[in-house]
Measured scan of single mutants.
Amino acid sequence: MSRESDVEAQQSHGSSACSQPHGSVTQSQGSSSQSQGISSSSTSTMPNSSQSSHSSSGTLSSLETVSTQELYSIPEDQEPEDQEPEEPTPAPWARLWALQDGFANLECVNDNYWFGRDKSCEYCFDEPLLKRTDKYRTYSKKHFRIFREVGPKNSYIAYIEDHSGNGTFVNTELVGKGKRRPLNNNSEIALSLSRNKVFVFFDLTVDDQSVYPKALRDEYIMSKTLGSGACGEVKLAFERKTCKKVAIKIISKRKFAIGSAREADPALNVETEIEILKKLNHPCIIKIKNFFDAEDYYIVLELMEGGELFDKVVGNKRLKEATCKLYFYQMLLAVQYLHENGIIHRDLKPENVLLSSQEEDCLIKITDFGHSKILGETSLMRTLCGTPTYLAPEVLVSVGTAGYNRAVDCWSLGVILFICLSGYPPFSEHRTQVSLKDQITSGKYNFIPEVWAEVSEKALDLVKKLLVVDPKARFTTEEALRHPWLQDEDMKRKFQDLLSEENESTALPQVL
């Protein structure tokens, strides 16, 4: 008996699950189920560990084997000379395990699969056993689809999209007709009724959600790893209520002995410091949205989908001078704002400069500016000194954290500008005749005249004003913003236009 009217009423009120309206889709043409990776026989039982391990490696599972009696060998002398080797079968990115008779397991190899009674669906509900069930008529011709799209860092995100009359449910929550939600590992998919569980979705590319604290899981769906560094790992996640993407940084307390840091400095109150950081608001710094204190720290951040500045300059790639100017102007505005709010970044580098898009002209935002507030000064500097390429001379020669101030950030900005303009770092371990530390503390950077011949004198002058060993003589952010190279009204107008595109209400910060 159909429950279409009941569920449609529920759909009209929406769902609290991570779902959002989605535009129309072009329906895929039908194809045989076997060619799409559906096993030839149905099963109602969950797999054992041996079955799972075989399939996850990209080899055929026991459900897909063919009797050897149906095959015969071709003698080598009868092999056609022009026969080309077969292409290897792509490894599946996800697996659906059937929970009921009449449904088959599915190895997801393609990027898009339609499910329903219509014969054009890649996964067609046409098993005779299924057709005899009382629920068969409640399934729509095109009930739902599972697909994946390219996300940040060229990774993939799996989604389920509801197109049914009676509802598609993920972990008992209604997706909603015309809406989608991301699928995470071990999600249970039910059709027409929330208790009519048909599939379990296994994402073969992500970790299980159960490793994360419950308070975090209640608000966010964790997904793929976006990156990792000395101070922690960053994962893509989704807000459950809105389906908006965020980035979540995970900082290990054990790695940084944060408990010991608190004992050594009783004034170090991470929760208080995070609340201060959350109040920071500038178009060129990453917004801190939320914070969870569990076995590790979880910092929920605004997501930038254009990648890191590092990706644009790695491998001796240089940027156009006009692009360097647009990016560097924004970096200076961001660091100036942090300094005005009493925050020294201490870890400025291309990896911590994020881009809003893949376009050459785009907004940038500074991230990882609050680590000293979370990890403690000593722990952070011990970590950073392991990779000193961007560290100021006074940091390398000081004991502990004494003896330096916000000028350290201006040195790091000078190193970043040098790399963007030239395509190579000013200080490098590859210069074996002088140690990296000695290069930095003496201010002897690697200047290649033929490379810098293409760079304007004004740009080079600003680099020199920032890479000054004496912090008292080094340019401040205010002085850098007043430098002739940055007195470019076309560049500032472009920045204002980019801000307006992102948010019509965002105004250009005042600069002296």
Rank of each mutant, 00 (worst) to 15 (best):
S19F: 01
E127W: 11
D218C: 04
I157R: 02
A247R: 00
C108G: 03
L71H: 15
I251R: 08
Q209T: 12
D77A: 09
I146N: 14
E64I: 04
K135M: 14
N185L: 13
G37T: 04
S24C: 09
Y136C: 04
H163D: 13
V7S: 05
S35G: 09
P75R: 09
D207Y: 07
R254S: 04
N185I: 11
K197V: 02
E84K: 07
P88R: 09
N185M: 15
T225F: 14
Y113I: 10
D218I: 08
T205L: 06
E70F: 05
N269R: 14
D111S: 11
F199A: 05
Y212W: 14
G23D: 08
T272D: 03
V270T: 09
A267W: 10
F169P: 00
G116T: 01
F238K: 01
N48E: 12
S52F: 05
T242K: 04
N105L: 10
T65W: 02
K241A: 02
E76H: 06
S41V: 10
Q83T: 12
Q209E: 12
E263K: 14
Y113A: 06
D6E: 10
K119S: 06
R117I: 00
S32C: 12
S15L: 07
P75K: 03
R145L: 15
K179Q: 01
V211S: 05
E107F: 15
K224E: 02
D101S: 12
N186W: 06
K177G: 12
D218W: 14
L96T: 04
P21W: 07
P182H: 10
N269P: 12
V198S: 00
F125V: 13
L130K: 00
L96K: 00
E107L: 15
P80M: 14
S50T: 02
S55I: 04
Q34D: 11
F256Y: 13
G178M: 05
I251Q: 08
F125K: 03
R240C: 10
S16V: 11
D77Q: 05
T26L: 11
A257E: 03
Q34F: 10
L99N: 07
T205N: 04
S192C: 15
L204G: 07
L236S: 01
G116I: 01
T168P: 03
P47C: 03
E271H: 04
A94Y: 00
S73P: 14
P90Y: 06
N269W: 13
Q29E: 08
A257Q: 08
K141F: 04
E107H: 14
S260R: 15
E86T: 11
S164H: 06
F125I: 07
Q51R: 10
D134Y: 11
K249W: 04
L183P: 00
D111N: 10
F147H: 00
S210D: 04
K245D: 06
S33K: 11
I38M: 11
